[in-house]
Design a protein around this nucleic acid. Structure first.
Lengths: 198, 198, 198, 198
DNA sequence: GATGAATGAGAGTTCATTCAT
DNA sequence: TATGAATGAACTCTCATTCAT
């Protein structure tokens, strides 16, 4: 979107590679369990080098969080604005997307449990802002559905929190080879959600 | 329940006091943010002394988890077995209890996010067992409700996971002086749950 | 002066031992050249142990500075209040004391060159306060001498700065086996100072 | 003085620019507080480039020191050799020059507090040599003054050390907006010095 | 000439854990 | 029982230095 020289692009790519790597580690070890050393090792770098790309650990963690959230937002937005789909279908897609991220990017997703402890004030503000934006996508489609009488509920905000909570929690018990596949979970959760909304 | 000498009882009490203190700290700082130092300080002890009562930090954390879960189990059991109440009423009470714990004992409750990282294999087994037991209380009442036609759902296990997830997540956004009081949240969540079950 | 239990006294002594050790290192390496590692090694401890006694490096450095300055203040005060000595004799003694410290405790004395960079605001305030107090001892005896007509000068503050500066600088060139001994330097400097004051 | 090709001259100029920049930083941050990064940033370069012009940090610091000292020497020499001025007047000018440098180039001037720590043996030798040369200018004019009976003192070397020390120390307490201006300080210090010399 | 990138040694700091008393 | 003291491993972060391009 923004013009970059070759060198800038290269640096940008490297930064992204690091973030992707860090995301993997965070998903395995959690935030405080992740060490700069391990992130570096995964990339065959030395930890000192990471500081060329990121101010400090908290900065790196912050960017991990942002990148995942922004990606998910992109996916949601595409569906939200796709007028070829019915309201219900759109929400369903969004639910599927959310569950996908909750399962695949379990720790990093919107799941920093105590972000106040990890992030600087400035970062925290943006983290919370990103989360709000994310949630707003769901609010929007629900509001539309209420307008069109597809959905019906009082206090849609609280209901959205109920629903997102249920989905976020999946990562706590999901196991790749469990009784139900990701697809089946998505389908059943969607059924519950639909029931709540009508 | 078990016979104890005076000395044993004294030690037992002390252990409990330490756990209660630790729970407070964990709720404030999270697991990895909790230091033995701070736990000891809260009790006007030195951290060395803690090791007389607990093998190590992980042991202390484990007991924190257990005590909260056992307490909550006690509360649930009392309601579950109270035949003077209707099935629905009983589940409602249980929901209220669960939300109460999720809010008041937010971090410790059933919420060690990645227990594999914190606990030894042995401990982990028990942690997971306790969780299962806990969840089973809900399964039981739901099963009863299905029998009596109070409730109606296929795959009650999955639905229970949906519901517990939604409730567990409350701690992520609950603020003591938020728009809705604990009581109001309990009520609304109960409404949603009832809708899902009928 | 203050009541202490055995244990407290022991800790106090240890702390003092560490400070004394640190002072040696600082005199050898300068402030930023001093590492916690080396201070610990000198005492056959590990650097981690230092943190049992001092909050951080800056705290240790601060206490080094304070202890030397306070000791020197004690020495000065004893002379200043010794009414059995003439004013001139008292100032002479004080000059000798100052030169002694400047030579023997060269780096730590009042000589942190850029204290703003090393100390926290709080510490800095006390450091500067201690320095001011120290200088005030000289101001007092000079003021007395002016009263008694022993001394004669306008702007005694500026003159005191001139004199202390000259003495402080000794550490920059003093060598134990140089042309003049400490005693001779003290005597000559006193001659110059007397000339300036009369 | 020495023939240079265009390219050499260009490099020479660049080197000087870097030194000037470095001097600024050193005056602000002290020797060990100065980073190659910051020096480079001030010049909109990258720190890697500095190594094209200087072997290492110590080399750069060394040249900073030299350049300031050589400049000051130039100034002193001009006055020293100006036979149109009286001996006293000449010394007065030299004192003013010295105080000027002590205030304006506070950290770099002759003030590397522990040069043994920073410089290689080779460099150290030259640093000390430059300092001696510098001091010798003062020795020369004082010697002349003694010859002409303008001044009178035994051990003029020691007295010169006393005087230079007093002046060097100014940087420890001088503040741009203090009670006395630079000019006033220069005047008073000159009065003291004159008193010492007659 | 200049730079982006990487390195590696070492610094300060934290903290669970141990143990003699 | 309790503690003061010490430890050591691990961690974050800094920075002078190098080098291919």
């Amino acid at each position: 979107m923004i013009e970059m020289t070759m060198a800038e692009r290269k640096a940008f790519n490297k930064r992204e590679k690091i973030i992707k790597s860090a995301i993997k580690i965070v998903n395995r070890r959690g935030y405080s369990g992740t060490t700069m050393e391990e992130v570096a090792a995964e990339l065959l770098m030395t930890k000192g080098s990471l500081y060329y790309y990121f101010k400090n650990k908290s900065d790196l963690m912050f960017q991990c969080n942002s990148i995942v959230l922004l990606e998910a937002q992109e996916d949601l937005k595409r569906v939200l604005l796709d007028e070829s789909l019915s309201i219900k279908k759109r929400l369903q897609e969004m639910v599927f997307i959310h569950i996908h991220y909750a399962i695949e990017e379990n720790e990093v997703f919107n799941l920093i449990m105590r972000p106040e402890q990890l992030f600087s004030e400035e970062q925290l503000e943006e983290v919370l802002h990103l989360r709000d934006e994310y949630a707003a996508f769901f609010d929007k489609i629900i509001a539309k559905g209420i307008e069109t009488k597809d959905f019906n509920t009082e206090d849609p905000i609280m209901l959205r929190m109920f629903i997102l909570g249920a989905m976020n929690w999946i990562q706590q018990w999901y196991k790749p080879n469990g009784r139900l596949s990701k697809k089946e979970i998505q389908q059943r959760f969607w059924n519950y959600i639909l029931k709540l909304l009508t």
